[in-house]
Amino acid sequence: MPKRRRQTAALPYRLSSDGAFEVLLVTSRDTGRWVLPKGWPMPGKKLSKAAEIEAYEEAGVIGTTAKKSIGTYDYDKVESRKRRIPCRVHIFPLPVDSLLDKWPERGQRTREWFAPKDAATSVDEKDLRLLLGRIETVLRN
């Protein structure tokens, strides 16, 4: 099996007015699937900071990621019909301070708030589904 390349993702979240957790997902540019804002490591930046930058670029999120990852998930990034890159994504929680009306990838993606269980059923990756299904417990501890 080929070595998995590392990626980093933000898990933007907030508490609703009634105290319930909500998770922000974005659509991928190529397939329109619901995903976390994610990307490749950035030279000179910690994975947590790179995840924060991806959340800003892909979803217009303003906030500060936690320094420690809360988990990982694996997927194959499809580059072309014949090329797939096995990836392991490190997830960093990101409490959302605010959302911008304009952000770099605004015209390329849609963003939406989900209840954690709805977010879990909206993503394709099994390990990410499992994490989202128990995210309230993970973040409260």
Rank of each mutant, 00 (worst) to 15 (best):
L139Q: 14
S48G: 03
Y75P: 05
D118W: 03
R6Q: 09
V96A: 01
A115T: 15
A59G: 11
G39R: 00
I62T: 08
S69E: 12
R5V: 02
G63K: 10
Y75F: 15
E52F: 13
P12N: 04
A55H: 06
W103A: 10
I53K: 11
G39P: 01
A120Y: 01
C87I: 00
Q7H: 12
L94T: 06
S48I: 00
I62D: 13
R83F: 15
M1Y: 12
E57D: 09
R4P: 07
S69L: 06
D97W: 13
L47N: 11
D30F: 09
A55V: 06
L25A: 08
I85C: 00
D97P: 00
E79H: 13
K82D: 14
S17C: 05
V89F: 07
E22G: 02
E125V: 12
L100G: 01
M42P: 03
E112C: 05
R6I: 05
S69G: 04
P37F: 00
S69C: 10
I135H: 00
V123I: 07
D30G: 00
R140C: 07
S48L: 00
G71A: 02
A50K: 07
R84N: 11
V96Y: 05
M1H: 15
W34V: 00
D30Y: 09
R5G: 04
P43N: 15
V23E: 07
S17K: 14
T110P: 01
E125S: 12
F92L: 11
D76H: 10
T137M: 06
K45P: 02
R109G: 04
R29H: 11
S122E: 03
Y13G: 12
R129C: 02
R111G: 06
K49C: 02
E125W: 10
K38V: 00
G19Q: 11
V35M: 10
S98C: 08
C87E: 03
G32K: 09
R83K: 14
Q108E: 04
G60F: 08
W40P: 04
E105S: 11
E58R: 12
T137Q: 12
G63P: 10
Y56R: 04
Y75M: 13
G71E: 06
P86F: 00
A119V: 08
P95C: 03
V89Y: 08
P2Q: 10
S98R: 15
P93I: 11
K77N: 01
R111K: 12
A115I: 09
E52D: 09
K67G: 05
I62F: 09
D74C: 12
M42H: 08
K38R: 14
L47Y: 07
K67F: 05
T8A: 14
S80E: 14
T65F: 12
A9M: 05
I70S: 04
R134M: 15
I91T: 07
L25G: 08
L99I: 08
R81M: 14
D127C: 00
T64V: 15
T137H: 09
Y13V: 15
A51P: 01
Y73P: 08
P95M: 01
T65R: 04
S17P: 04
C87T: 07
F92E: 07
T110A: 03
